[in-house]
Design a protein around this nucleic acid. Structure first.
Lengths: 341, 341
DNA sequence: CTGAAAGCGCTTACAG
DNA sequence: CTGAAAGCGCTTACAG
């Protein structure tokens, strides 16, 4: 079907016997234009359903009002809450968002950064793909276009980074376990030294140290590609120890749920024999029984904050790069898996 | 910071003492260009990291290679699987995707369609906002730009629509329940006559009819804004009946999970006393205990199919509109909530 | 084989 | 107060 063409300034001008310049100015409320002309133009524009071609506009001004977003996996609930914040905030500030999924593939990630620039985005928001070894291509991007990172970040990249208070969140989770009387607390973390896993582990260590609880390497487990299944496996290992832990902190909800499933299987009572705490407040944390205690990460706020900083950088370019880390506060949600009255 | 400007054709031309036209043609492998020139140009382009400004390119050709996507809620797992398919397929065909969330708000949805057109998208993919009363604005859009709908569709809109075999999927679910010996099967559906709810209900009715099971209105429940909580409430109602059902089919997983939670509370054994089947194969369906039988909807395939049809329409414009419905097959996954050996 | 020129739809400095 | 012209970065029909 031959689609209706959009009305252009030229057509409006012709119909009104005016120049394109005048029509453009009238629509943009330029002070030079007389009231009657302005009215006439606006009326016709309305009647003919004129909508400016933002593409032409952006092309001229070198600004597209489009932001690029790259996330490792769009299906993670936490990611979608961040995206919600990004969409809402950018829309309310007059920007659109192009989203890509790196699928945790570093090379894809690099390509995506390139095409986003080709598509003329005004700035980029990104969470790093897992196992991103070299950040060179990102550093190069940084010289060309404003970039703000969130959630999966790297201190090797000098840009604004919006994260949660990972260390403190883990600290609070462990302290809570200590408060309910636990003192042999296992942790399930990632092998990879990702920013998130590292910080959460630091919080774990600090909590134990500050409460004078000895650190036992036997109950500090690491796994690659942490998941429900890995959580289950790690729990099996912990259950086979001579001295079992009395609490397990998994740095993701899915691993924590795997832990609960394993404990069920071996008829371990939760939380009395072993308490469990996860991280994310994912949907599943209230589906599993007992309901999982977990750290709530305000995704929407992270997204909104990241957009706000990015657009600020776009609209008020600074002379120099600086690593600025914004920490968003999390909240420990205590549910049955660690509730002892 | 003053960001590095991208290299333009003009600069390459100047450096090579060639015209912009020649450089453009060389890069696009135009047959007129001599081999040595082509080589020279490509080499320099590479060395200077030239990337074409797709924006200018698109502006000229009236094609942006950007698709607009509108979904009601980006956090639904099923939606994210569709988005995954959309992203993967459009990327592999050289398109980018702008995503917006209508938050089930009809007015927002209309605005979004407008801005997408302003942003010059080549085509639009959309799932209808809940309770979309008037489709007038969408019909108008349809005259201007290719549009393909998916999942939440309406037969009032004459365009390509990609859906699952809703009716048949429900039919299969009910037939499965009958096969395991159930004959008093309740359904929890939506009040609103959405395409999806309507079709699933039709499948329910047909299965009962074909197996000569009488229809009892007392166990056909409808609710607005179906959710886990509503599922729980509906289950309570069903449990209070003099003649309880021996199976419950909920048209969403979340409602089905609510049902399971309610049954637990009243110590009803699943599936012996009451079997439960949901719809979606969401993450939670394997977290809940007993694991939930459910209909798996191949989201990624839906997304890919929708993109394929849309891009075909963009690249091979047809003369006339026609409603074409593509049905993607689903798969019933039987788990413990309805498994009777 | 290569170049000069027009044009995509818009904005804006420059004239008048 | 209004208009003609240049220009954003690219492609392509028209010359040569």
């Amino acid at each position: 079907m031959s689609k209706k063409q959009s009305v252009t300034l030229k057509e409006l001008a012709k119909e009104l016997q005016l120049s394109v310049s005048t029509v453009s100015r009238a629509l943009n409320d330029h002070p030079d234009i007389s009231e009657p002309t302005r009215k006439k133009v606006k009326q016709l524009a309305k009647r003919r359903h004129y909508t400016p071609n933002l593409f032409a506009k952006g092309f001229r001004s070198h600004r597209t009002h489009i932001l690029g977003v790259i996330v490792p996996n769009i299906s993670h609930y936490f990611t979608t809450t961040i995206l919600k914040g990004i969409l809402a905030q950018s829309e309310s500030l007059g920007y659109r968002v192009i989203i890509s999924e790196s699928r945790n593939d570093q090379q894809k990630q690099t390509e995506m950064l390139e095409t986003m620039i080709q598509f003329g985005v005004d700035g980029i928001l990104m969470a790093l793909a897992r196992k991103t070894k070299s950040v060179d291509s990102i550093l190069e991007i940084l010289e060309r276009i404003p970039l703000v990172m969130f959630d999966k970040v790297s201190d090797k990249i000098p840009c604004t980074q919006v994260v949660i208070n990972e260390e403190e969140a883990a600290y609070n989770a462990i302290e809570h376990l200590i408060n309910i009387g636990k003192n042999r607390i296992a942790i399930i973390k990632e092998t990879e030294r990702s920013f998130n896993s590292k910080k959460r582990f630091e919080g774990y260590l600090r909590a134990l140290k500050e409460h004078n609880i000895p650190i036992d390497k036997k109950i500090i487990l690491s796994t690659e590609d942490i998941s429900l299944e890995k959580g289950r496996m790690m729990a099996n290992i912990l259950l086979s120890l001579k001295k079992r832990p009395d609490a397990i902190f998994a740095i993701t909800d899915s691993a924590a749920i795997g832990v609960i499933k394993a404990l069920h299987k071996f008829k371990v009572t939760i939380p009395d024999e072993i308490a469990v705490v996860g991280f994310s407040n994912s949907n599943s944390s209230t589906i599993i029984s007992p309901a999982l205690s977990t750290v709530d990460q305000p995704g929407s706020k992270i997204g909104k904050t990241a957009v706000t900083y990015l657009i600020d950088e776009i609209e008020n370019p600074k002379e120099d790069l600086l690593t600025k880390t914004i920490e968003i506060k999390t909240n420990l949600i205590v549910r049955d898996s660690s509730f002892i009255p």
